[in-house]
């Protein structure tokens, strides 16, 4: 049966050299929500995203993305997904607008169609004035915004973002948050990984904390705080960071 949920992950298992990186991971995302995947380094966040895109084949479990079975129909699924990767991979040889044009071609879009979409994408990224600037001249924040705009070139139903604000200064982070909030308001479904608790608290309607390849807590940020980081003796409310540390331990990971 094809579900209306944009993403279903069931009992996912992935081993590398016999060592389980994903160990029975399950979660679903509802249409139009921003869902956060939190966890310490090495918890399995990036491996999960690789499985969702069909770039890694799980050893067990089931993945359904936008009604399509992954990895079997991964290529079809990717046509309707936008991805912001953890590491910058913009084309340094191209201008800002050319990056969007060339990327749109990978989706089989005609040059005329992409050109029609480019002004709105540049406006969204706040890069209209830099359309013909070389990508090399952009700041870190601008590059991230261009990468986000590039992920929207195919007008995706689902956006996948792997640590979208890692390495950015506070101003640049805020601009990305505004962009993501605008996309959720417009009805896009978003899956993001992060280890910034303030980012998750601000953007995500629901989130899951994963550790050692399985989900150890899941719910709305306020629920998780209520459950795992109760009000302190002085009456101050707890926060998501306390939840995270309470659940994943204080030991250094790597």
């Amino acid at each position: 049966m094809v579900s209306t949920l944009p993403l279903i992950v069931e009992r996912l298992v992935k081993r590398y050299d016999g060592r389980p990186v994903l160990d029975g991971l399950s979660f679903v995302i509802h249409r139009g929500e921003c869902f956060g995947l939190l966890g310490p380094n090495g918890a399995g966040k990036t491996t999960t995203l690789r499985c969702l895109l069909g770039h890694a084949v799980p050893d067990a479990g089931r993945i359904e993305v936008l009604g399509l079975c992954v990895p079997d129909e991964a290529r079809k699924a990717r046509a309707r997904i936008g991805v912001v990767p953890q590491f910058d991979n913009l084309d340094p040889d191209f201008t800002v607008a050319e990056n969007l044009l060339v990327y749109g071609r990978y989706f089989g879009l005609s040059d005329a169609e992409i050109s029609r979409r480019i002004p709105a994408l540049l406006e969204f990224a706040g890069l209209s004035a830099r359309a013909h600037a070389s990508t090399r001249t952009l700041s870190g924040g601008m590059k991230r915004r261009l990468t986000l705009a590039r992920a929207l070139v195919n007008d995706p139903e689902l956006l996948i973002l792997d640590e979208p604000t890692t390495g950015l200064d506070p101003q640049a982070r805020r601009l990305i948050w505004d962009n993501l909030a605008r996309l959720t308001r417009e009805g896009k479904t978003i899956l993001l990984t992060t280890h910034f608790m303030d980012e998750a608290e601000r953007l995500c309607q629901r989130l899951a904390i994963i550790d050692a390849g399985r989900i150890i807590a899941e719910g709305a940020p306020a629920e998780l705080i209520e459950r795992h980081a109760p009000r302190r003796e002085n009456g101050c409310p707890g926060n998501l960071e306390e939840v995270f540390l309470a659940l994943t331990g204080h030991a250094l990971r790597d």
Partner: peptide
């Protein structure tokens, strides 16, 4: 170095 292939693989290109 540029991770261009990685970017392309996120589109429906094999």
């Amino acid at each position: 170095v540029q991770r261009t292939w990685e970017g392309i693989l996120n589109a429906p290109v094999s």
